[in-house]
Design a protein around this nucleic acid. Structure first.
Lengths: 321, 321
DNA sequence: TTGTACGCGTTATCAT
DNA sequence: ATGATAACGCGTACAA
């Protein structure tokens, strides 16, 4: 890239006077803020770190920066934050686990012309593009393996925003192929570190069907472990456990916890910013769903042969105290 | 706050035309961006989530928003990010675990007049305000307890940025009172999930002094657990373990891991933004260190009686492979 | 009290 | 190719 003679002089003068372009003036002139808002329903540990890493690095590469907003688990606040970010004239929005209740705000954003993307999950009522990974094969592999180990009934534990997404759909299909029972267990949003909500939820399995293998999001794993320990059961002898999303804690635990790798998280961050920026620049039409990457199924010690009886002993105690 | 008759009409008209103030124009005019940059040396799990939550909520309360930047573990990139954020005209900067190598950039920022705060830790060569918690009493309590349990030699495991801060100082003082040996063990920055760096570091204890209790930052805990498991040792029988910073994973682990509570993290986020904004507004002179809150020492099962011999068996094996 | 005009720093356009 | 000028929308200062 040969610089012209003139350009040389300009650059020299610029560094001489240490000229710094004024971003605010530029933004005013071009009517774009080069800023992406990213809104979290809750900042929860590992998955968030990985995702943010991917988002941030790709955004900076493309000359955008990230404005963070955290609803702290409160759906109402999520809506408020969307309003604030609109005022801040972000060029685009990325929503992490958005609650279904923000439909009105999302529609408003569509009217104003601010592109909105969801990552990982999208409530059924929100008609916005979603970037996520494609765990078809890995979920297939995991279910195959569970079948091979004699599991006949598996469960998925999740809160509102988790349920009804592709995971449950894929699990439904995969288990059907093996003639297995698949149950979805809804757990209320709970305070991080509070095991009782999850204990309560798990106890319900007793009334429904004797689940011998449980899948859940990474951030729920500590609570599940706590709940299982609390009633003196063991993994994988009493229950096989699999995490959506990987992280160092899964390896540190004994037994090590099986996972669908969330190295995906970084790629999802990357892909999200990439798509979003393309939409902002108007170079690409909007798609409804983007699949960033295939997840990897990692078998570890938390998956073992199905126990004779399901997850039933003990949890009643918790409920009755 | 009674609104004047005129104000009423203005507001009515405003909402009628759905007038939206243009932030860029305002920023240009007032020469402030109402934006705080927060730079992470690495986004690592739980501690980051808690901190960001505190930072974000307080920043929004005060009309600021957070621009995120992540160095992903690369000190050189940290410096670059500081440059970028300066160009983005952030009104202030918050640095999480800043590397010592950014001294030049920090000095430059001082010249340009952008206030810079560190949270949690501050390398000795960086003369910037620090907001952190005050673990004096809790560290005292922990060391008292370890002494009571017969521990004579305790260690602190940390990477560059951790060492030389208040933790090591306080530990030095507290252990001295009991006539205990205190060793600081430096571990290179390592990839998350890679246990070998920590294994290697731990093995050095063998040549130095037989440590029976180990303290380290929360994000190092998985690696320590992995390393200890790898050589077939057990906690707390072979080694007592204490985490700086709490989180759900510590409770999920068996044995549960003792910690200095990082509910502090949220408060630290709060206090940081508070102080920083005061400095930006010029209402307060800058202090060198702010103590946001006292940490709480939580004893759990990972702390037990000192074993007869220290941490020596097994780690040699790791080194020689 | 109400109105008017200017300047913030940049980019885009128009005339040279 | 180069130089001059207008406009982005807001806050403020000064005039009426």
């Amino acid at each position: 890239m040969g610089r012209s003679r003139l350009a040389e002089k300009v650059l020299a003068a610029a560094s001489e006077l240490d000229y710094r372009p004024n971003l605010a003036a530029r933004h005013l002139r071009v009517a774009r803020s080069s800023t992406l808002g990213v809104v979290f329903s809750r900042l929860d540990g590992q998955s968030v770190s990985d995702l943010l890493h991917g988002l941030d690095s790709e955004a900076r590469n493309r000359g955008y920066s990230l404005i963070l907003a955290d609803a702290g688990g409160d759906p109402a606040r999520f809506a408020v934050l969307l309003g604030q970010l609109e005022k801040q004239q972000v060029d685009g929005l990325i929503l992490y686990r958005p609650p279904a209740s923000i439909e009105a705000e999302v529609n408003h954003l569509r009217v104003v012309g601010i592109p909105v993307f969801a990552v990982y999950q999208r409530p059924p009522n929100l008609d916005i593009p979603l970037v996520t990974y494609r765990p078809t094969r890995s979920i297939g592999a995991a279910v195959d393996r569970l079948a091979e180990l004699g599991h006949r009934s598996i469960g998925y534990l999740g809160s509102d925003s988790d349920i009804g997404d592709f995971r449950t759909r894929l699990l439904t299909e995969a288990t059907a192929e093996h003639g297995m029972t698949f149950s979805v267990l809804r757990v209320e949003e709970y305070e991080v570190g509070d095991f009782t909500a999850v204990s309560t939820a798990l106890s319900r399995f007793r009334d429904e069907t004797a689940v011998t293998a449980l899948l859940t999001q990474h951030h729920n794993i500590p609570s599940v472990l706590g709940a299982v320990h609390e009633v003196g059961q063991r993994i994988p002898e009493d229950l096989s456990l699999i995490s959506f999303g990987d992280g160092p804690w899964l390896l540190a635990n004994r037994p090590q916890i099986s996972a669908f790798s969330s190295r995906a998280a970084i790629n999802i961050g990357l892909a999200t910013v990439q798509r979003l920026v393309e939409v902002i620049d108007g170079t690409t039409p909007v798609d409804h769903t983007y699949e960033a990457t295939e997840a990897i199924w990692i078998e570890r010690d938390s998956v073992g042969p199905a126990p004779a009886r399901g997850l039933l002993r003990g949890f009643g105690r918790i409920l009755n105290r």
